[in-house]
Design a protein around this nucleic acid. Structure first.
Lengths: 203, 203
DNA sequence: GTCTATAAGAGGATAGAC
DNA sequence: GTCTATCCTCTTATAGAC
């Protein structure tokens, strides 16, 4: 790792730029509407050059999703390091980070059941490994938070996990932002509130 | 309206079949992946015939979305007729209907900010009128439910409305269904719970 | 209005020179 | 590895006969 030729370094830097562009475009438009021409133009290289780095559009998207999960795992590490934080604190922190990232336009939309990407991602080991790792960490926190009495014990941990995952593509953020009347911080607080405390008034 | 020729009736019946097919395919695959060839094959007519009924793929989708909103407005009427129901009862009933419809595979996904459909729908009067009407009805219930102390008064009515709208495309339903371990009724109860009461345990 | 056949164009992927 | 130019498939949309 430590000894890379100039050529190897520029290669990595370019791939990094490509993946960042794909992450942003996936967040903006989604997989199907994003075109490879667009990616190439945005990065500033020819389309054929793109295909020297990634074998297909699916591989491109998989790399972007893999990086997005990597960023989420980084946040998990940050939370693990906070020894005084409760499981609930950690879950809320991760959820908040997810909302912030989506609102910043940097969260590629997770693949729904119907997406053409889904099967490609399932076949992509780097993506699946990170997804499993993330689910394991969050799952453990959820079980702990339920044991602590912080999260509703009647909900299966799976349902809680999916509900938190779904915040990564929650359209409510975009709707409220489009209205233009609210600050990002305000929007995030409201969505955090509805996620953890619901719409109903608390007693 | 009462005097229609045989020809006119078959025309309407056919258009009805087309729109129903589009609603289902939109729910299954979304707008971009759905092809006009597919729609024609499913209805059982030639593609060129489809274009005699609808001028474009966008018009096709707009008609389907318009019908979906019409079905939602029908539910609003049903709730309005229940004189003893509270505003909160009505909101929950509509939300539950939305979840059931989505789980049944009959709810075309609402257009996100980024969708290629969005501008076409905004230009489609029938769609926009119904959307306004629906938002007005739900908005009035939300304000009433807040006055009743049933819904959190700190949330803008707009945020509550969007949160309920978002249940029409909530991926959590599909995720839990894909697991295969839970009944539809169970899944809907959990999502209703997280929507109105949140993930956190109630005191 | 329905069909077959085809135009027109977008977009993913590749050939081959440098 | 990068480029230009091109291929090829898929998809929207239409022409024209019946």
């Amino acid at each position: 790792m430590s000894r890379l030729s100039f050529r190897q370094k520029t290669h990595l830097v370019r791939e990094d730029a490509i993946v960042n562009t794909v992450m942003r475009l996936l967040a903006e438009k989604g997989y199907d509407p994003m075109t490879v021409d667009e990616v190439a133009a945005d990065v500033g290289i020819a389309k054929a050059s793109l295909y020297k780095h990634f074998a297909s559009k699916e591989a491109l998207a998989a790399a972007a999703m893999e990086r997005a999960l990597g960023l989420a795992l980084d946040q998990v590490q940050v939370q693990q390091a906070l020894v005084s934080a409760s499981a609930m604190d950690r879950l809320k922190a991760i959820t908040r980070w997810t909302l912030q990232t989506q609102l910043a336009g940097a969260m590629p939309t997770l693949p729904a059941e119907n997406s053409s990407l889904r099967k490609a991602l399932i076949a992509h080991r780097g993506y699946m490994d990170r997804l499993m790792s993330l689910s394991d960490s969050l799952g453990a926190w959820i079980v702990q938070a339920q044991a602590d009495g912080a999260i509703n014990r009647l909900l299966p941990a799976e349902a809680v996990l999916f509900t938190i995952y779904a915040r990564a593509c929650d359209p409510v953020l975009g709707f409220l932002k489009a209205g233009g009347s609210y600050s990002d911080a305000q929007i995030i607080d409201w969505v955090m509130g509805t996620c953890f405390d619901g719409l109903a008034a608390r007693a």
